[in-house]
Computed example of a mutant assay.
Amino acid sequence: MKRNHVLGAKQFDREMLEGIFQTTREMERVVANGGSDRYSNKVMTTLFFEPSTRTRLSFESAMSRLGGKVIGTENAAQFSSTIKGETLEDTIRVVSGYSDVIVIRHTDIGAAERAAAVATVPILNAGDGAGEHPTQALLDLYTIEKEIGRIDGIHIAMIGDLANGRTVHSLSYLLTNYRNIHISFTAPENVQIPTYVKKYLDDHGISYEEEYDLTKVAEKADVLYQTRIQKERFMSLDEYEKASGKYIIDRELLTHMKQDSIILHPLPRAGEIAVEVDEDPRAAYFRQAQNGLYIRMALIEKCFEE
């Protein structure tokens, strides 16, 4: 972790994950006790070249609750020197001089790595196109452990837009650090899980299947990880409509789920989880979003470790 960057899920091993989760539990206590001023002399810059609500606000809240300051833009593509033709690398070189840590979300796969190559401060990848979203995957994994009590031995179903779902890619990579994992990939035909993700799972001995019947999967999975069909990632409306509305978690599906299973979603949702599901105790996605604050506080803490 050169300069304590967080760039992708593959950089973490199990020992590192356990350390991050321990720090995350400590951060839950920090928030419960009213926050901290330990980083009152630190500045975080948030550079979001792609829209975000939860990720950006949770990072900003995390820094604020640790006593730090936040500067940046939620629309860097339109309201920055980028529109004048400045390269990402030049932007990062300049902003590094203003900051102690930079959070970046970008439309291009690999943008975080490009930023880290020239940055003089830690870079935290808040999503790079259809590539990865490592901080989301970390909070997803933390939520699974917190809700179920374990990660080893779980059966997780990943549902929806698996081709463009960077959260699914990152979570799949993180799960290779655990034992006896089984993954069911349930997706429309035109947004199946990429071959390179399956190869990584094969290389690490992870059991998985591609199963089109969501009811069948729901009957045996410990975790249903639902994702949005991402309209903005499709080249045509026709391709989007082929995938949209195929897999929906509703009251009927709840009757097929195990009583001790949970439903996760990285949010925002767009109809793929019915509102009626929210009242079910297995619906953990809002608790999952709350955990994003604690995880990102922990990552900021790790950024400043010597």
Rank of each mutant, 00 (worst) to 15 (best):
N125D: 13
H204P: 02
I154C: 08
D140G: 00
H265R: 00
D280M: 00
H133F: 07
R228T: 05
R65G: 10
V275S: 14
P266N: 07
A117I: 04
K146D: 15
M158D: 11
T24D: 10
G205P: 01
R25T: 10
D108G: 02
R287M: 12
A115E: 10
I300L: 15
T73I: 11
M235Y: 08
S236F: 12
Y173A: 09
E239A: 14
E60M: 05
E279Y: 12
L139Y: 08
V121Y: 08
A117R: 11
K146C: 10
F185E: 11
G68S: 11
K216W: 13
M158Y: 13
T255C: 08
G292C: 04
V103C: 02
A115H: 03
L174E: 03
I154T: 08
N190I: 13
I193N: 10
T195S: 14
M235T: 08
A119H: 05
R296M: 12
A111I: 07
G8Y: 15
S61Q: 11
K246L: 08
T215S: 14
F49E: 02
E241M: 09
V191C: 09
S236N: 14
G131F: 05
I83W: 05
A270F: 13
L175I: 01
G34W: 11
A137F: 04
E306V: 12
E276G: 02
N33T: 05
H5N: 15
M297Y: 11
E301V: 13
F49A: 00
R56A: 14
R56L: 13
E219W: 07
Y240L: 03
S172I: 03
N291G: 01
G149K: 00
A283I: 07
R228P: 04
H106G: 02
I92G: 03
T82P: 00
S36R: 02
A62R: 01
R3V: 09
R38W: 07
Y208Q: 03
A112R: 01
P266S: 08
L139Q: 05
G127A: 06
V6P: 04
S61D: 15
K216L: 13
F49H: 00
L293F: 08
L214E: 14
H155A: 13
K69C: 13
P188D: 13
E252L: 08
A218K: 05
T91G: 04
P188F: 13
K220S: 15
L293R: 02
R269G: 15
S61Y: 12
Y173P: 01
R228Y: 12
I229S: 07
I181G: 02
K246A: 10
R282W: 09
E60D: 08
L237S: 12
N41R: 03
K231L: 06
R269H: 15
M257L: 08
N125W: 13
G85S: 04
E219G: 14
V94N: 15
A62V: 04
Y212K: 11
L214Y: 14
S36C: 07
R166N: 08
F234W: 08
T87E: 12
K220W: 14
L66Q: 06
L253W: 06
